[in-house]
Amino acid sequence: MNTEYNFPISSSTAANCTVKTLRDESVGTIKDIMLDTETGEVAYVIIAVDSGFLNLGSKLLALPWAAFDFHGHQRDVIVINVEKEKLENAPGFDNDEWPVGPQHEFINKVHTHYGFDRRRAFIE
């Protein structure tokens, strides 16, 4: 994630932005931001995919927070630093089948798929 500018963004502001690839292709919008209750950090971000993008239908994709660049030149666009090919086989789910229960495995799968490290809680 681009950290040149260091300021907070509200979840409602993020949810109103269009998510695009580095090639300026519209992917969808942020549907939700999932928090890790152990670390207090964002576990992953849910994107509602635009119908027609990669023929994924209404699939929801989960991406690590680190995959997003919130500091682009357009205030209403958030860019994901992920190749289109990674999105085709991305961890995701249907709107009526969100992951439930302990999610360590799913969170690890999301981060591993995109090649980002997952932060872990320090437990003594």
Rank of each mutant, 00 (worst) to 15 (best):
F68Y: 15
E88D: 07
G115T: 08
A67I: 03
K109D: 13
V77G: 02
S11G: 04
G115S: 08
H113M: 05
V45D: 01
E97G: 00
S12N: 14
V82Q: 01
T13W: 05
K59N: 07
K84Y: 00
D69K: 02
H104Y: 11
T13Y: 13
E4H: 06
E83T: 04
P99D: 00
D24G: 01
N108F: 07
E38Y: 15
T3L: 13
D36M: 07
A48N: 13
N16L: 10
D96F: 12
D94E: 10
K109C: 09
D50L: 08
Y44G: 09
V45Q: 00
N81Y: 00
F93C: 06
M34C: 11
F93R: 01
E85M: 05
A121I: 02
K86G: 00
K84W: 04
A121R: 06
G57W: 06
D36C: 15
R23D: 15
T29M: 07
F93K: 00
V42G: 12
L54P: 04
T112Y: 08
D117Y: 10
S58H: 11
S12Y: 12
F70E: 02
N95Q: 10
E83W: 02
R23C: 05
S51M: 06
E4S: 13
I47M: 04
E105N: 08
H104D: 15
E83Y: 08
V77E: 10
K31Y: 14
L60I: 03
E105H: 10
N81A: 08
E25M: 05
A66W: 01
G40M: 06
K31V: 01
F7Y: 14
L56M: 15
Q103D: 13
Y44Q: 06
T37A: 12
M1D: 11
N2M: 04
H113N: 11
V42M: 10
V100E: 12
A14I: 12
E4T: 13
E4D: 12
L56Y: 03
I107C: 02
E97H: 12
P91L: 01
H71E: 13
W98V: 07
D69F: 01
S11D: 11
I9Q: 09
G115L: 05
S58Y: 06
T18G: 00
A15S: 14
P64T: 06
V100A: 04
D117L: 08
N108C: 13
K31R: 14
L35W: 14
T3H: 10
